[in-house]
Computed example of a mutant assay.
Amino acid sequence: MSLLNPYMPVITLVGELTVLIILSIVISGFILLILAAYAIKSGNLLFPRFMRAGLLFLEGLMRALFRLFGFEDSDFLKIIVTLQNTLNRKAFMAVPISERAVFIPHCLRSNACPAHLHDEGLKCRECGLCRVGEGKRLLEILGYRVFIIPGSSFIKRMIKRYHPRAIIGIGCLMEVKEGVEMSTQVDIIAMGIVNLSDGCVETTADWDQVFRIAVLGIDPKDVPDEMIKYLE
């Protein structure tokens, strides 16, 4: 024991610092949980930068706290996507339409879809069997480059080919979260829109939200009449 005596102040300090760090993490976790619960219930985000950094840095702890207090994993993922959209909104609005792209998942199409796969994704024939054709038409009127893609490899290929500075990604919750995070890593401004229903075929997109985001930063006189209602 006498051998440790000279080091006891250091050992004590390290122990106290460890306890303080653990307490700080736990307290931060509960603060984040309260902010997230408020966002889920009210739809309003408080301190989005702090929330995003904290939720990602403490992701394991936060997922456990979410489950402990009766929230689903999907609630956690939705908060992450919403935070990223909120933080990207201003930068997205500043990007010209000519430098934006929209990626639509092929799972939205009808089971009887007559479209064929090309090197840039599915070539929509606007047959009217689903809403993809109409959505694509309106987005292209705005000036977007629109791709209907069967997988993430097509997204990477089109980004490499056309170098968009900003994208709108539509898909299931996990795909959107991963896509937004991937876009951040390659310095692309991404806005994610989660489908209203999941699955492999005939899923449902939140087209109202797609159009609300699509018209951000666009001069109202350049917005077609059928999309005026989405201007804020």
Results as ranks from 00 to 15, higher is better:
Cys127Trp: 05
Gly128Cys: 01
Leu129Ser: 05
Arg131Gly: 12
Arg131Asn: 15
Val132Leu: 14
Val132Tyr: 14
Gly133Asp: 08
Gly133Arg: 00
Gly135Pro: 02
Lys136Thr: 13
Leu138Ala: 08
Leu139Glu: 03
Leu139Met: 09
Glu140Trp: 03
Arg145Val: 02
Arg145Phe: 03
Arg145Pro: 01
Arg145Asp: 04
Phe147Ala: 10
Phe147Ile: 07
Phe147Lys: 12
Ile149Thr: 08
Ser152Ala: 15
Ser152Met: 09
Ser153Thr: 07
Ser153Tyr: 00
Phe154Tyr: 12
Lys156Glu: 06
Lys156Tyr: 06
Arg157Val: 04
Arg157Tyr: 03
Arg157Trp: 00
Met158Tyr: 12
Met158Asn: 00
Lys160Cys: 01
Pro164Asn: 03
Ala166Arg: 04
Ile168Cys: 11
Gly171Glu: 09
Cys172Gly: 15
Leu173Thr: 07
Leu173Pro: 00
Met174Asn: 10
Glu175Leu: 04
Val176Lys: 08
Val176Leu: 07
Lys177Tyr: 11
Glu181Met: 15
Ser183Asn: 08
Thr184Tyr: 12
Thr184Ala: 15
Gln185Asp: 14
Asp187Ser: 12
Asp187Trp: 00
Ala190Pro: 05
Met191Phe: 03
Met191His: 08
Ile193Tyr: 06
Ile193Pro: 12
Val194Gln: 08
Asn195Trp: 08
Asn195His: 11
Asn195Asp: 14
Leu196Thr: 03
Ser197Cys: 06
Cys200Val: 13
Val201Leu: 13
Thr204Phe: 05
Ala205Gly: 15
Asp206Phe: 05
Asp208Ala: 09
Gln209Ala: 11
Arg212Tyr: 03
Leu216Val: 08
Ile218Gln: 04
Ile218Met: 05
Asp219Ala: 10
Val223Leu: 02
Pro224Lys: 00
Met227Ile: 05
Ile228Arg: 12
Lys229Asp: 11
Lys229Trp: 02
